[in-house]
Simulated assay, not measured.
Amino acid sequence: MKNQYLYLLFSSAIGFSQVGIGTSNPQEELHVAGNNSTIRIESLSNANNPLNDGIKNARVYVDANGNFTLTPPNYTAGGSGYGNLPINFLIDVPNFIPDNVDGLPAPYDSLGRIINSDLTQETVEGFIFSATFTVPQSCTVEVKHGVTIVISGSNMLTPSLAYINDSKTRTIQTFFCFDINNDGLSPAEKALQYGHKGQFYCSVAGGSLGYPYMNSQGYATLPPGTHSIHFFGIVQDPPNSFTSVGFGGATDYLKLRVYN
């Protein structure tokens, strides 16, 4: 009797090319009926797939064989560098500003990009660093970044480091701009400044050296294509004061996320 049931089931599967779940009248090869019906593929769960963090919904792709997967095309394993990342991240770059952009000798090789405001200046703006990325379609992009700062009363490019102990206040700011199509930052693109963040530094009699930390974020709507993001720093100090600021000498981060 058992063999007869198996035979009937097998022949039924051969005779019908459509399978229905919740319906006796399937309209496709696989038809899942019901207004609240769901499908679960356990190989894509966060317990079985490292690209599913279990918090945000993960985007499912279809590979050349028709298989469902969470791995996007050209995905770079490890989650670092400028490769494609899972879910909705464009880039996720730890320590994106090189610690020794200006190529200084040790022990001055962890100062980042140095911007000086000398005795004749009160406000100085300078370029820090840029990164290139690709946007697959028109979308809103969220930028989050954190930058470390080291402050000195002497020119760190000489190189040297000196405590500031004049009890005067300095301000340090960062912002970023987008170079659309990565063909050179135009004056119009430079005028669109995002993510302005600043903090002040006021020395005491003993002075201070170290790595203050500040972070910021901003949003922009971008067209599809390959673009670049450019970071700038601003140093402001009182008249007849010398201030040297290194942007990115310790551990920094940069994250770009897309909202479709």
Score class of each variant (00 low, 15 high):
4 Q>W: 10
19 V>Y: 03
21 I>K: 11
22 G>R: 04
22 G>K: 09
34 G>M: 00
41 I>Q: 04
43 S>N: 09
45 S>D: 07
47 A>Y: 01
57 N>F: 15
58 A>P: 04
66 G>H: 11
71 T>A: 08
78 G>A: 07
81 G>T: 07
84 N>F: 03
87 I>H: 11
87 I>V: 13
91 I>G: 02
92 D>H: 01
98 P>I: 08
99 D>P: 00
100 N>T: 01
109 D>T: 04
111 L>Q: 12
117 S>V: 11
122 E>R: 13
126 G>C: 04
126 G>T: 02
127 F>M: 04
135 V>R: 06
138 S>Y: 01
141 V>L: 13
148 T>G: 12
157 L>W: 11
161 L>F: 07
161 L>N: 13
163 Y>R: 11
166 D>A: 08
170 R>A: 14
171 T>S: 04
174 T>H: 07
179 D>F: 09
184 G>C: 01
185 L>H: 07
187 P>R: 01
191 A>W: 00
191 A>H: 00
192 L>D: 10
193 Q>M: 03
196 H>N: 06
198 G>Q: 01
202 C>M: 10
206 G>W: 12
207 G>K: 00
215 N>Q: 12
221 T>V: 14
222 L>M: 10
232 F>A: 07
243 T>W: 00
244 S>Q: 13
247 F>H: 14
247 F>Y: 15
254 L>Q: 13
255 K>D: 06
260 N>L: 02
260 N>T: 12
